[in-house]
Design a protein around this nucleic acid. Structure first.
Lengths: 339, 339
DNA sequence: CTGAAAGCGCTTACAG
DNA sequence: CTGAAAGCGCTTACAG
């Protein structure tokens, strides 16, 4: 099958290929009449630009990269990525920008993949997720000068875009709600300590507790798995002054906690209130249904893509905070037992 | 930053750019000594081929497409896709082939996206998932002659690769297990009727039941959601001759069924056994833990990528059946109550 | 075994 | 407003 090129359009229209290029790209230099004729011919013969040729001359690949650095088997666990990706797609597809997805084991491999993609000119920009407080990817991105947007808090030292969630507000809402119910001993089972937002949430938690005059609350760090969530819960519930409420950094650990409480003969929510850090189908279907923090992940992805596309178009990097978190109250929380 | 090209390598090595190209691509036409020298220089100056230039002359884009046709909000629900994608990636990344991901609403949009990607030469081949019994994408793929592999059963009329799961064996195993426990009234809550494998599984279910002398079992078709799963369960359990066991086509519906049974005062597994069609964290964490069919989705993705890469390299399309399904027995199944 | 050259399908100054 | 030409960075016959 012979490929349809602008040469053919030029011939049919009786103009030069330069004129066709100008017409097709909406540049000045061709009369409206000629432009219209050229566009019609292009449509008629079903012409589509060769991306390779466009990239080679125009130096744009029309793709952006998303390099996910996580062990493969933990990927299916959280619905976050598919939601985030469909948000990205929603914005990208309208601009005819493709999403290049890579899944790698760790940051070392992610850096390798970034370098390669960039050297090959496969991508015009990159989305960075799962930011660490100390993140080795950032200096490489800056050195390479890759247009990049962080799905996370902005770095003061970086000229990168950033879109992040208001974790502090979300933590505040959870603590305020539990305190209003009458809880005073509230603990937190946090996620991966290396993640930037884990530290932000822990700090927010401590401050919120202090604001209510509740000092030195228990915080346990985990790897987000059900196993460590269960273990942390067991440890907290074995204390003499055991908490009457626990905030979990995701939904899976919160569910694991329900089981632990049941095994230990501690009633949920009668004796223990549980708040899940992510909302998902799971929270609705489990019994008791889990009170949870709900985030609009798709919007998060969409805004992230918008900031990146702007940067690729040469506009300055933007930073944007998502304010979509809200606490969805279900059956796993209630007033604490009388002291 | 000036791009490093083969011209620079040629100059440094004192050979023509043609020689450099041959050397770098491992073709005959250069002495081993020259090749070595060229490779060393390339390494030293950190040369990477421009994908655009390679594509334009070599007519390969070094990318394959995965176009997922599902409403965005249902995507996060199932862990299937992230697992499948990490399987694909595992194979692709070793070959330096990128995965181009698109998420669209329906088959019409998927066809549009396919046509465009192919016309732009953005992809060398495509992976097709969620096959319908009557699938409008297939004729378009054939017409365009896109190298494609179906993540599903092969079509006799198509010269396409195919990798699929042995649904019949999986259904047989579930039914055999339940019958061995003593169940005779077994129902099935199936997934989306339009999907090819839904029909395969229903047929397998009917045959397995017939083989055990149990005719005309109840089958209800759903859209895979917890809502329809709950509704189907309620309907089945309201019958005079209600089933003592139900097979669900995924995990979410099985979980919804646990809740329905509880509401109706029917004990699981004492009075009702439940088998989930997919295995996930959920199945382990819920109480009672769900007996489930477990599939190695990552291997499924990996083999799918292998078949596609072979086709892109010009080898004939292969078809391969995955035999990884196994029944994981947990707490949601037991002998039926005495009649 | 190697060099010179055409070609892939576009874009973009530069003349007219 | 339009045409002719160089260039993007590779690959690949074709001569030597």
């Amino acid at each position: 099958m012979k490929r349809v090129t602008i040469a053919e359009i030029a011939e049919r229209a009786g103009v030069s290929i330069g004129a066709v290029s100008y017409a097709l790209n909406g540049r000045p230099g061709v009369s409206e009449e000629t432009r219209k004729r050229i566009m019609d011919i292009a449509d008629e013969i079903g012409w589509r630009p060769s991306l390779a040729a466009k990239s080679l001359s125009g130096s744009r690949s029309h793709s952006v990269g998303l390099i996910i650095a996580r062990p493969a088997d933990t990927l299916g666990v959280e619905p976050f990525f598919m939601r985030f990706i469909s948000g990205l797609e929603r914005e990208l597809s309208g601009h005819r920008i493709a999403l290049l997805l890579q899944v790698v084991e760790d940051h070392r491999a992610a850096i390798e993949a970034m370098r390669l993609c960039w050297a090959e000119r496969r991508i015009d920009g990159i989305v960075v997720t799962d930011l660490y407080a100390e993140d080795t990817r950032i200096p490489v991105i800056e050195e390479l000068r890759i247009p990049a947007v962080l799905a996370g808090r902005p770095r003061t030292d970086a000229r990168l875009g950033a879109v992040w969630t208001d974790d502090t507000a979300a933590v505040d809402a959870s603590v305020d709600y539990l305190v209003a119910l009458g809880h005073r001993r509230i603990a937190r089972v946090a996620g991966l300590p290396a993640l930037d937002h884990t530290q932000v949430r822990i700090a927010a938690f401590r401050e919120a507790m202090a604001r209510h005059g509740l000092s030195e609350p228990q915080v346990v760090e985990t790897d987000y798995t059900a196993e460590e969530g269960a273990q942390a819960t067991r440890a907290l519930l074995s204390r003499r002054d055991r908490p009457t409420a626990i905030l979990f950094d995701n939904d899976v650990m919160a569910l694991a906690a329900i089981n632990v409480a049941q095994e230990m003969g501690i009633a949920v929510p009668g004796e223990l209130s549980i708040v899940a850090g992510d909302d998902s189908q799971l929270c609705v279907l489990v019994r008791p249904a889990l009170t949870a923090l709900s985030w609009d992940i798709q919007a998060y992805g969409l805004h992230t893509a918008q900031v990146l596309l702007d940067m690729i178009d040469g506009r300055p990097p933007r930073t944007h905070q998502e304010n979509t978190a809200r606490l969805v109250i279900r059956g796993s929380t209630a007033a604490p037992p009388p002291a």
